[in-house]
């Protein structure tokens, strides 16, 4: 079974976001980069599927050279090979075009199944999976919190507001992974894994290598653009309810404030 996992390198979730002077970008110079946590869940699910049914796991990403590190980590976790799309022409490409390049790279691997995180913790758009599937003409299942496959069909569970849906379809299917660390518990790269990863194939491709026309990716062809970034209003520390009150006195005072000052209860 050819399993493809699409990953993205994102800033560590610890990152405090600062804006560049033009208010159009964030400051990235001192950022620690990680694999998008949801993409890690996708890698974990792919490795489990491979352990059960055999096959290969290819990880694909788009981004600058620093993304090699994320791909090597995925290889160290147990993936077999990796592809990085690195083309300066794509730097300001919008969601649809980034995804088009990812689709082209994925197709080269003749995938039976594609896994991807349900959203990235940087842009938080939660679009990649559905767009990829649409471009491939495949069905997709989004936000999986469980995944079973016998190599022919796939069954997943997906949470909805106040409930859960169980879905089944024949392959090929694209699955986006939701849930949280407690659900997928992605493995760490072992030391032998890290050693082996150094020798695993990692191809770097440009748009033309994927049969795409770089002209289609020029910034003026963007269908959507970010005009400015802003930081949320700083929340300030409010009052500590004390005033020498005992426990029930504080509780009474809090209820009073929530009722009369905040008017939320």
């Amino acid at each position: 079974m050819n399993i493809v996992v699409i990953i993205k390198q994102t800033p560590d979730t610890e990152t405090v976001i600062r804006l560049a002077p033009d208010n159009k970008r964030i400051v990235t110079s001192d950022i620690k980069w990680i694999i998008n946590p949801y993409d890690e869940f996708a890698i974990e699910a792919a490795l489990r599927l491979k352990e059960k049914h055999g096959g290969t796991v290819t990880v694909i990403s788009f981004g600058a050279q620093r993304v090699v590190e994320a791909l090597r980590t995925a290889l160290a976790m147990g993936a077999d090979d990796a592809v990085l799309i690195d083309d300066p022409q794509m730097r300001d490409a919008d969601f649809l075009r980034v995804t088009r390049a990812l689709v082209a790279a994925a197709k080269e691997k003749n995938p039976d199944i594609i896994f991807i995180g349900s959203r990235t913790v940087d842009y938080d758009q939660g679009q990649r999976g559905a767009i990829l599937a649409e471009m491939l003409g495949w069905p997709h299942f989004a936000l999986a919190i469980s995944m079973e496959s016998d190599g022919k069909d796939i069954t997943i569970e997906r949470p909805i507001e106040g409930g859960k849906v169980t879905l089944k379809a024949p392959l090929p299917v694209l699955v986006t992974f939701g849930g949280s660390h407690a659900v997928w518990n992605p493995r760490y790269a072992s030391l032998p894994g890290i050693m082996k990863a150094k020798k695993k194939p990692l191809a770097v491709k440009k748009l033309t290598d994927l049969g795409l026309d770089p002209a289609d990716f020029s910034p003026d062809k963007a269908r959507i653009r970010i005009t400015s970034l802003e930081l949320p209003p700083q929340r300030k520390a409010g009052k500590i309810i004390d005033g020498g009150l005992d426990t029930s006195g504080k509780a009474r005072e809090l209820v009073k404030l929530l009722r009369e000052e905040a008017r939320v209860i």
Binding site: P11, T15, V16, I17, L19, I26, V121, D122, Y123, D124, A222, R223, I224, R225, I226, T227, S228, L229, E230, L231, P232
Partner: peptide, 14 residues
Amino acid sequence: PMFSGKCFAWCEWA
């Protein structure tokens, strides 16, 4: 909201 609300982005369409 990007980064789960650590930052906001304004967007416009072509």
